[in-house]
Design a protein around this nucleic acid. Structure first.
Lengths: 137, 137
DNA sequence: TTCCTTACTTACTTTTTTGTGTGTACTTCC
DNA sequence: GGAAGTACACACAAAAAAGTAAGTAAGGAA
């Protein structure tokens, strides 16, 4: 009777391939999700889909980011391995950001979501108006 | 020389089909993005992909949501037209939530992102460890 | 000589988000 | 008779996120 375990959590200790579970409170996948789906995380990933960019380029492109937030968001994505940071020791500073292969994978999903929202904006806005009327009337 | 305008913003006034732009500060697409990509927004959409659920069912399934946050997140998704709310006037209250066709479309994208993260958790975690070492050493 | 540039960091303040506890209506179970 | 269960709303407190201002290094421009 060797029924395989339903989840991989009970697998062999060494080469375990654990799957995340966003529904579980302590799962680190939640943190990663917030990094990539945060307001600036999304814009960074999407921006880098068309190649490498400097800090200031990203800043100019993304309306409304403060330097602090951009730096913070980039740092999180670099730590997670989605973005590669290359800095040249010159003055003034010169730093390039680009997607890692892994970053490219997530970025595609994120971009798909972002594109859906952008192209279907009208539909959503119409729904909102209808909803308002329905509530008011 | 009637080159078509690059963006739809300059189109005819009535039947305009405007595309959102998440990079623009005042664009409402940003708000919508935060709704669907918020911590609980994601879990709600994904949960509802397998059918309709009651408030308390969602609450039990999603680890760590407070009633307040669940209600708030659901309300936003209902207003945007992603989720349909049906309540029966009985005591104790009975309310059902399900995806609208539009909600189903976004939910698929959101679920794809969530699945990528869950299956690639190990890769990300490995990257983090490497990064830590690189910084420390 | 002072300013401007870049890619940040740090300290401090303000804003936003989230949590907590309470109440509600009625029925059912103990 | 009291507790539990449901789907919230509301007020207030606590926590987290974000904004702001200032500082840094080296060189060139005004």
């Amino acid at each position: 009777m060797k029924t395989p375990p339903p989840s991989a959590e009970t697998d062999a200790p060494s080469a375990r391939l654990v799957r995340g579970d966003v529904f579980a409170i302590p799962c680190p996948s939640r943190e990663i999700l917030t990094h990539v789906s945060s307001r600036w995380g999304v814009l960074i990933l999407v921006s880098l889909l068309d190649g490498t960019h400097r800090f200031s380029e990203l800043r100019r492109r993304m309306g409304g980011v403060s330097e602090k937030m951009l730096a913070q968001s980039l740092k999180a994505l670099v730590e997670d391995g989605f973005v590669r940071r290359v800095s040249y020791p010159v003055v003034p500073p010169f730093v390039e950001y680009s997607l890692t292969p892994m970053g490219h994978e997530v970025a595609r999903h994120v971009a798909a979501l972002k594109d859906w929202i952008e192209t279907n904006l009208d539909r959503v806005l119409d729904n909102r108006r209808q909803h308002e009327e329905a509530v008011a009337g």
